[in-house]
Design a binder for these strands. Structure first.
Lengths: 208, 208
DNA sequence: TGCAAAGTTGCAGAGACTGCAAAACAATCC
DNA sequence: GGATTGTTTTGCAGTCTCTGCAACTTTGCA
């Protein structure tokens, strides 16, 4: 019994991780992030505290539910893009694809996260504190594509701009309901693409 | 005895803060960041552990020595810039001014920090985890200058690009000795200014 | 069924960080 | 100088996150 897709083991792991993520977000939204202990989260997910830390390196990480495979997945997408695509475009679409997927699979969780982030905007920044490794991975992919030496700042800047775009988009998104998060990320990335030297023209009020 | 500049109290506070910052960096460089406890740092600075936490919200913060007045100072500089200066330029020069000052006053500390960051690059990202408040402050200043509503992402993006530029510049700087940190930050900011859509032309090897 | 690999758990412990109330200290007023 | 007031430092008790380790349970496979 070793189906190409998933073994029992893998399925269980995914479910445990999802349960922990969900428990964290749900409880945090319900009674405030720091009035929830890891002990309670683990209990809610029917698992020991020790197991919680086997899945997430920190409580912060569980709140955002950082998928450990997201980094590698994006890196692969970047390298797999056709040759004529610029590194920027390759990176941009890999980020957007990842986010679109995520939102399609867990929109409800993001709505709860929004509740939490509206109370504690600082958590969003903190949640990225442990992503140095992914950043490095992605920067290498971008660097490779662009044919730049490791000393060049461009890949690092581009990748960091990506997290930043996401971060700012979420912050903006938490202000009201009238915009799609995916669009905001795209918009932010475009601003980084075209440059911040000049203030962009105003967007129409009321969308459409 | 209440000289315009500084009272005895203020002077003592500054010295304690500096001592804690220095002790943190020195010990971390010497024996590795997480083989140093706050208890040891406090002892080195001749002060109680509790006092350490009166000055810094976390060990991470002490390592970078985030100056609580840096945010307000930069915000003020941004607002004080002449009218014909673009928000980007106002922000850019306020960042560079701050960094230049910092490097002039504490170059030796930064050299030690470099040691630490070469071992543990992830600490740099973590060190920014608690600067949400400053970011908000600066974003407001930029937003005000640019005459943008709070919902516009531009100010947040610009400010976040600033921390990112600094972060990447430090990472790059830690690779070798041949460049000035201030220049790297400027370079990174310029890239954000002109846009990341295209890979920038290569810099000449060997400077000049 | 039985073995090996992977995952879970409890436990003990280190260490970061907080709130509180007492003590030490500096600035100010008479 | 001495009393008064506002700040800073300190100790202490306690909570919580997070880690290493060793035992135990479950799954994958022959």
């Amino acid at each position: 019994m070793n189906q190409p897709g998933e073994s029992l083991r893998d399925r269980k792991k995914r479910r445990t991780r999802a349960a922990l993520e969900r428990a964290t977000v749900r409880l945090a939204a319900e009674r405030g992030y720091d009035h929830v202990t890891v002990e309670e989260i683990a209990a809610e997910a029917d698992v020991s505290v020790r197991t919680f830390f086997n899945y997430f390196a920190s409580k912060d990480e569980a709140l955002i539910g950082a998928d450990p495979e997201a980094g590698p997945r994006m890196a692969e997408r970047i390298l797999a893009a056709p040759d004529e695509v610029t590194p920027f475009e390759a990176y941009r679409s890999s980020v957007l694809a990842e986010i679109t997927d995520e939102l399609n699979n867990a929109r409800d969780l993001w709505l709860l996260r929004k509740e939490v982030l509206m109370q504690r905007p600082d958590l969003l920044l903190r949640a990225f504190a442990n992503s140095a490794e992914s950043e490095q991975l992605l920067a290498n992919a971008v660097g490779q594509r662009a044919g730049l030496p490791e000393s060049d700042m461009y890949p690092r800047l581009l990748v960091a701009a990506g997290s930043t775009a996401f971060r700012c988009a979420v912050t903006r998104w938490a202000l009201d309901d009238n915009v799609a998060l995916g669009d905001l990320v795209g918009e932010a990335l475009d601003l980084f693409g075209t440059g911040l030297a000049h203030v962009p023209p105003h967007h129409r009020e009321g969308g459409s």
